[in-house]
């Protein structure tokens, strides 16, 4: 039934592991040399401006045709919701591709609201992990997926460093992965900003070319260094993301993972993966050749010996 046996898999794993020790990494086509599409769009999220009105959640719900929410979008009691014994704030799920959470800064002061959604990485780990190629990074900067192709393996959910893709657990017949697609179908592909950006009253969300947004972000920090932390989250994280954040409060206090690597997630696997073709294609031929060379003379001797015996 299965194309690969347990023994075969273990053998391949051992060979592959060994090859990473002896193989030479091919930096020539390294993933982290890609800075994103030049015309890629993005969104700069200025957390100092957000007042937690949740209009972005409502706009997303209508734009994406999502089901009715459990509570109205003007109900602010959702900010008090926690899960897993109070350790987890609200997350994106199959019915909400973006959510806003409230954080109380350690040094006091006004609460900070943080919108989460897919960050649309330059080199998405979800895309890399998908073995049916359901994901696409478009030239406009969106990470979209083809749910008709999705087989529901949920590799992307494990791979995503921001834990964004959600699973349609409620669907018994066709459970697929769901996430924010930057409103690609209805807006971005026609040069329009996503629905959440358009509804935001405070321009917390600034839409534009990613390269321009980086300038804007650094410009805001430079002109008001007392207001902002000197960091643009998403500029370098996991190879860069289309969505960028600036904040007055340290990012780790707002639920951001500040331990993320600067290289794309793909970089962790590519040294190994680049050796796989070499191991699978060259090694068998090479060692078969060695074997043939080292046994060629012996076989002839054996043949001639048995010939001699028959003759004799």
């Amino acid at each position: 039934m299965s194309g690969i046996s347990r023994r075969g898999f273990l053998a391949a794993a051992v060979i592959g592991g060994a090859s990473t020790l002896v193989g030479t990494p091919t930096r020539g086509w390294s993933a982290n040399s890609f800075d994103g599409y030049p015309e890629g769009m993005g969104v700069l999220v200025d957390l100092t401006r957000c007042v937690g009105c949740r209009s972005c959640e409502a706009a997303c719900n209508h734009e994406q045709g999502l089901p009715e929410p459990d509570l109205p979008f003007d109900d602010m009691s959702v900010f008090d919701q926690t899960f897993h014994h109070g350790t987890q704030k609200r997350r994106t799920d199959e019915n909400a591709y973006t959510v806003v959470n409230r954080y109380e800064p350690e040094e006091g002061g006004a609460p900070v609201y943080r919108k989460i959604q897919c960050n649309h990485c330059n080199e998405p780990a979800c895309l890399t992990s998908c073995f049916v190629n359901a994901y696409t990074k478009t030239q406009e900067g969106a990470v979209i997926y083809d749910s008709k192709v999705c087989v529901g393996c949920r590799n992307c959910m494990v791979a995503c460093p921001f834990r964004i893709p959600a699973y349609a657990y409620s669907s018994a017949l066709n459970p697929v992965v769901r996430k924010c697609i930057f409103c690609y179908d209805t807006r971005l592909s026609q040069g329009r900003p996503p629905a959440c950006v358009e509804i935001c009253p405070q321009e917390v969300l600034t839409f534009g070319y990613r390269r321009d947004l980086l300038k804007t972000a650094h410009d805001r920090i430079r002109t008001d260094p007392e207001r902002y932390i000197d960091h643009v989250y998403g500029e370098k994280e996991v190879g860069g993301t289309a969505w960028l954040y600036i904040s007055a409060v340290p990012f780790e206090e707002l639920g951001f993972d500040t331990s993320l690597q600067r290289e794309p997630i793909l970089a962790n696997a590519q040294d190994f993966l680049s050796n796989v073709p070499m191991v699978l294609a060259i090694w068998p031929a090479l060692f078969m050749g060695f074997h043939r060379l080292s046994t060629k003379g012996k076989e002839r001797e054996e043949e001639s010996q048995s010939f001699d015996r028959e003759e004799g």
Partner: peptide, 14 residues
């Protein structure tokens, strides 16, 4: 748009 007022979701647990 905000599912509020007479459009408030009914009978759901949060």
């Amino acid at each position: 748009f905000y599912y509020s007022g007479r459009f408030m979701p009914a009978g759901k647990q949060s």
